[in-house]
Amino acid sequence: MPENETEPWEYSLYIPNDLRAVTVSRRTLRLILTMHGLIGLVDVAELLATELVANAVRHAKGPAALRVSWSAGVLRIGAWDADPQPPEPPRALERLGEAEEGRGLALVRACSDLWGWQPLSRLGLRGKYVWCELAAA
């Protein structure tokens, strides 16, 4: 648990449309959570951020951003991309089998406490923000 869990914080990492951004985002998230004393959330948070950022980079043509925030005992991880189209609804994990694609949002839904998306403009570009939340144990 963080030393001062009542103080909210937020970080944003703007990333290019480059698959290497997924690794940079994951490692940055690990550092942020470790520095805030949230090491118990790191593994699941990394998985969720990886799926969100990978979707943003893979399916959109422009820049993207990772946003991580903490407030009232809840960690929110989100990815913005420049594609205003809603994400495909996640399928049930059981129905995915050994599929190589299409499991990202299914993992997000299964591993987070809450998830969603909303239209959001950034840097003068229309896009969307897909987010999920994890409550501290």
Score class of each variant (00 low, 15 high):
21 A>N: 13
48 L>P: 00
129 Y>L: 15
134 L>F: 02
125 L>T: 06
64 A>M: 12
56 A>D: 05
9 W>K: 02
81 D>M: 02
82 A>K: 00
102 G>W: 07
131 W>C: 02
22 V>W: 04
79 A>C: 14
13 L>H: 03
89 P>W: 15
130 V>A: 12
114 L>Q: 08
6 T>L: 08
102 G>E: 15
43 D>F: 06
46 E>N: 10
73 G>N: 09
7 E>Q: 08
13 L>V: 10
46 E>M: 13
54 A>S: 14
12 S>F: 01
104 G>M: 02
99 A>I: 11
25 S>P: 05
126 R>M: 08
115 W>V: 00
98 E>D: 12
26 R>S: 11
21 A>E: 09
137 A>K: 11
46 E>W: 05
104 G>F: 02
116 G>I: 10
14 Y>H: 11
78 G>D: 06
89 P>T: 07
81 D>L: 02
22 V>N: 00
48 L>E: 01
82 A>P: 02
36 H>S: 05
112 S>V: 00
128 K>S: 09
62 G>L: 05
45 A>V: 14
20 R>S: 06
64 A>T: 14
89 P>V: 13
106 A>Q: 07
3 E>R: 11
130 V>N: 01
45 A>F: 13
122 R>H: 06
126 R>V: 10
114 L>W: 00
63 P>C: 05
2 P>I: 12
74 V>A: 13
38 L>P: 12
54 A>G: 01
6 T>V: 01
71 S>Y: 07
64 A>F: 03
74 V>S: 05
20 R>F: 11
128 K>E: 04
11 Y>S: 03
33 L>D: 00
52 L>C: 08
68 V>I: 15
79 A>S: 12
96 L>W: 09
1 M>C: 06
63 P>M: 15
131 W>D: 09
44 V>Q: 03
103 R>P: 01
35 M>G: 07
133 E>H: 03
105 L>C: 06
34 T>M: 04
15 I>C: 09
56 A>Y: 02
8 P>M: 00
66 L>M: 15
